[in-house]
Computed example of a mutant assay.
Amino acid sequence: MSTVKVAVVQAGSIVMNKEKSVDKALQLIQEAGRENANIIVFPEVFIPAYPRGMSFGAIVGSRSDTGRNEFLRYAQNSITIPSPEIDLLGNAAKEIGAYVVMGIVEKDGGTLYCTTVYFGPDGSLLGKHRKLKPTGSERLIWGEGDGSTMPVINTPYGKIGSLICWENYMPLARAAMYEKGIQLYIAPTADARDTWFASMQHIALEGRCFVLSCNQYSTKDMYEEDLLENEDIKKMPHEITRGGSCIVSPLGEFIVEPVFGKEEILYAQLNLDDITRSHFDFDPVGHYNRKDIFQLIVNEKKQ
């Protein structure tokens, strides 16, 4: 198919509450389905949340019992694969006949991962991507993914794949996605700084692909009431994440400019022929790929 309708969901989690966050996700999937979206994209770790502002009681050389209890709560509200929550999300995708790309905190053994999961319009789990390198304090709570979870998935609407947040600053990770022929490049994030948007435009130009960048809009109202007593969270402003989701063309132009200050689903009808048009100027895996000079080796074995 030469065209696809995409939906980028800018919304906030119900922080540290798996059940309520799943329910909110299901409602948003239905809403996008009513608008006949073919591909629906959610932010980084939408379920059960990006725990912005929380220190988990850790300083260099010391952890606290309070922090361990916060991690316990985060783990208890994370998602295993398979699980009833995965089934619910898959059934929601099947009900509206769309692809759904969802950010979750995945629990595997005693480790949590920042993970993107892909659901097909038949409700099946098509694949997942675990964040390769958690950033800064994220390293306290999330493990590292490996090359076995870097899929680019064939769909009737083009090839879709994802790098999460600051993975998008890893040149060789991007190059690996380009080599796999990515056409709909999904960039869930927790970064709402002005500098992020230049990166999204650059990636679209570099990869000659559509870029769907998806961030949360969240306020303290979305935190569970007892979490508001957390000393770290008390210091935060009411608006915790300002949003900034956007959609960019293969020529680096905003199709939907960054949206701030509200929850909103961004919609766009994309023409995949625009990718081929952009290749007239530049093709990172075609006539601009000097394989006689440069080689990329990707270890896709499970570690």
Rank of each mutant, 00 (worst) to 15 (best):
E19G: 09
E19T: 13
V22Q: 05
D23G: 00
K24P: 04
Q27C: 05
Q27N: 06
L28D: 02
E31C: 00
E35C: 13
A37T: 11
V41F: 06
V45N: 05
I47S: 03
A49P: 07
Y50H: 14
S55F: 12
V60Y: 14
S78R: 02
I79W: 00
D87N: 01
I96H: 05
A98S: 15
E106K: 00
D108H: 13
L112F: 02
G120N: 13
G123P: 14
T135F: 14
R139P: 02
G145S: 06
T149N: 00
N154V: 00
P156D: 07
Y169M: 14
R174Y: 15
R174H: 13
A176H: 14
Y178A: 10
K180L: 13
L184I: 14
I186L: 08
D191F: 09
A192V: 01
R193Y: 08
W196G: 08
F197N: 04
A198F: 11
Q201V: 05
L212G: 03
S213D: 03
C214W: 00
T219A: 06
L228M: 08
L228E: 04
E229P: 02
N230P: 13
P237M: 15
P237W: 13
E239P: 06
E239W: 05
G244Q: 06
L251E: 09
P258G: 03
V259K: 01
F260Y: 09
L266D: 01
Y267Q: 08
N271M: 11
R277E: 11
S278W: 11
S278E: 08
D281T: 10
D283E: 10
Y288Q: 15
D292H: 09
D292A: 07
I293V: 11
E300Y: 10
E300C: 08
